[in-house]
């Protein structure tokens, strides 16, 4: 995956992580992951809850030692150079961990101080990032008074105090309303344009399609697929999907006839999904075959189709 002359930022080979939980049982959260992330790339880890995304992110963030395999970040080994690597990383955790007793500006200032910068530099950086987070009016407000979206923006701004080479984002927009998500995507896109390498986990497919150049789908601690969003759709789904909805009870009769009309047909409790390269043609065939659905929809395949195909439709946690 690494192109000539492009600097490798993160390289993992056979990366594993096991925990001993209470009762003496060992949980294998990550079972052997190979990834390569290059400078300037936006790389995504997709997967259902419990797939091992966050555990992988913590190993990359040098806050969780690996159990096995090789891991190099910015050319260094986290086991021996954790402090030096963390000095160059920005970390946005899944749960905000801002200091709620401090103001927006103080949070940024204090966090910059943890990196050892002089006071004047930290003050200037805090002022700059208050702007970046669009929190100028709230700069002197305590964090406990901010909305969820504002806190998330502040957490992302805080991760930038050291002008990181890599920004690690663990589910950056989970729990936010659509407006807040779009504002965040805009900020992240700007960062990517300015050359920051982004590594994020998400289980929102639209987020992955919006932000990621390349991604891996994780399931059960392993990588199930890897590629760009378009490559993954081409490889694991078809170009288009025809969704047929039936009046309750009438679907079963149509299932056999429909199965012959598409490369793959998925049977859901309330509808049939026909995976095809030409949706309109398939829909015409459906009508010709005498199948009379309640409603029919032709749409493009999305990463969500890939995701569900690779990780299944049943709940995992």
């Amino acid at each position: 995956m690494t192109a000539e002359g492009v600097e490798t930022i993160i390289a993992a080979r056979g990366l594993t992580k096991s925990f001993r939980v209470k009762g003496g049982e060992t949980v294998h959260a990550v079972r052997g992951v190979d990834v390569t992330v290059c400078r300037g790339e936006a790389f995504g880890f997709l997967g259902p809850n419990g797939a091992g995304k966050s555990t992988t992110m913590r190993m990359v963030a040098c806050t969780s030692p690996r159990t096995g395999g090789e891991l190099t970040i910015l050319g260094r080994d986290p086991d021996t150079d954790g402090v030096a690597i963390r000095d160059r990383l920005g970390v946005v955790p899944q749960q905000d961990n801002l200091d709620e007793d401090l103001t927006v500006r103080e949070n940024l200032y204090i966090y910059a101080r943890y990196f050892g910068y002089p006071r004047a530099y930290c003050r200037a950086k805090a002022a700059e990032l208050v702007e970046f987070a669009q929190l100028t009016d709230k700069a002197e407000a305590r964090v406990s008074q901010l909305s969820g979206g504002m806190q998330r923006r502040l957490t992302i701004a805080r991760a930038l105090v050291n002008d990181p080479d890599v920004l690690l984002l663990d589910e950056p927009t989970t729990g936010l309303d659509p407006q807040a998500r779009h504002v965040l995507w805009d900020r992240l896109f700007r960062l990517k344009q300015s050359g920051v390498t982004l590594v994020l986990t998400t289980h929102y497919m639209d987020e992955a399609e919006q932000l990621c150049d390349r991604l891996v789908v994780m399931d059960g601690g392993l990588i199930a697929a890897e590629g760009s969003p378009a490559e993954l759709i081409a490889q694991y789904s078809t170009r288009e999907v025809v969704e047929l909805r039936f009046t309750p009870g009438e679907q079963a009769a149509a299932e056999d006839a429909a199965a012959a009309l598409a490369a793959r047909v998925e049977v859901l409790p309330d509808r049939l999904l026909l995976y095809t390269d030409d949706g309109d043609e398939t829909l015409a065939a459906v009508t010709a075959a005498g199948i009379a659905p309640l409603s029919a929809l032709v749409r493009r395949s999305t990463l969500e189709d890939v995701f569900l195909r690779l990780t299944g439709r049943s709940l995992v946690d």
Binding site: T63, R86, P93, D99, Y111, Y114
Partner: peptide
Amino acid sequence: WRRTLWGITATPIT
């Protein structure tokens, strides 16, 4: 509860 120490130890602070 506040989890601030997780934020602090994501920096060069061990």
